[in-house]
């Protein structure tokens, strides 16, 4: 019945064939009208609007980073000034620091998230518990990032919850200054909110692994560790890669947590973009945005390359 499904996908209500209809301009108009009221028309129109309103600005900004600008006035000559500035002003350090932080946070999320996702997909028995965890991982997308970050100040500050409590218990004499406005506080603030980004794709990938496959591996005498290594991890790889991207990229570009919990002492990429744009150095901001975009692109490219290799050539349409 291949023929049948193919036909339906192609042309569910038989509107594509116009050979029984008038020819020439009239036929063209009839075809356009049908295209518009069919389901395809709106999608094509939306895709064009989306490209013009959303994708073009991104391309333009890359181009913009190659221009020089004073305030809102653009000078129309192409130069690598903005990029030279990044190196000369020593701001490349920011790139290194941000990438280190993003890599570390991604690694922590992966180490904690993979077993957690595995447990959730294959070991958790109670339907209610699974639903609860799934809900708990969804809700963070809908929380105000500044509000939930701000509270950490009240927890980690020198007069905050942790220091006060420890001093009351006589465990420390003076408040620990490194708790807030440090790499530690930034890491702490970033791990929680981006943990779901890691767990969800891995969970979905593991969920798709047939239980029979895992059972078969055990029946053939494989230890749980061997099953994990040779069955689960390879099959969950697309999910793991997606989790890494969904965690690394937004952490790299997060501007709220470093601003609130970094206290301006340790600058991150997004801080720099903000301060450059505040000082109206938009070409510089665009250059940094381009760098973030480029790093994202490289990661995505690696992901696609990896997936193609894993699935095999030709299998990817």
């Amino acid at each position: 019945m291949n023929v049948r499904t193919d036909v339906m996908l192609r042309d569910p209500l038989g509107q594509a064939d116009v050979s029984l209809r008038p020819a020439g301009l009239h036929r063209w108009i009839v075809a356009r009208k049908e295209w518009l009221i069919s389901e395809r028309g709106p999608v094509h129109i939306f895709a064009i609007v989306w490209a013009v309103a959303v994708l073009v600005p991104v391309i333009i900004s890359v181009f913009f980073s190659l221009l020089r600008a004073h305030g809102l006035r653009i000078q129309w000559n192409i130069s690598l000034h903005a990029y030279r500035d990044i190196i000369e002003s020593g701001r490349w350090e920011v790139v290194v620091r941000t990438l280190t932080a993003a890599a570390a946070i991604t690694a922590i999320c992966l180490i904690v998230g993979f077993p957690f996702a595995l447990w959730l997909a294959k070991r958790a028995k109670s339907e209610k518990l699974i639903q609860f965890v799934w809900m708990a991982l969804t809700v963070p997308f809908f929380l105000d990032p500044s509000a939930r970050t701000l509270v950490w100040r009240g927890v980690l500050g020198s007069t905050g919850l942790v220091n006060t409590a420890l001093m009351k218990l006589d465990l420390i004499d003076a408040p620990m200054g490194w708790l807030l406005f440090s790499d530690f506080s930034v890491y702490l603030g970033l791990i929680g909110p981006y943990f779901p980004n890691m767990v969800m794709p891995i969970y979905l990938a593991i969920l798709l692994i047939d239980n029979d496959l895992i059972q078969a591996s055990a029946d053939l005498g494989a230890t749980p560790a061997k099953t994990l290594r040779s069955i689960i991890i390879p099959l969950a790889m697309p999910g793991i890669m997606a989790g890494i991207i969904f965690t690394f990229v937004p952490v790299m570009g997060d501007s709220i947590v470093p601003s609130i919990l970094g206290g301006g002492k340790k600058e991150y990429l997004a801080d720099t973009v903000m301060s450059l744009s505040t000082s109206m150095n938009y070409a510089g901001a665009a250059a940094f945005a381009t760098i973030i975009l480029l790093l994202t692109g490289i990661l995505l490219g690696l992901f696609l390359l990896f997936r193609r290799r894993a699935v095999g050539p030709g299998a990817v349409a």
């Binding site: 900004s61 790299m252 665009a286």
Partner: peptide
């Protein structure tokens, strides 16, 4: 997969 800050600055520019 595009960080918010990139969208923000790009749309602004």
């Amino acid at each position: 997969v595009v960080p918010g800050i990139v969208v923000g600055i790009d749309i602004f520019i």
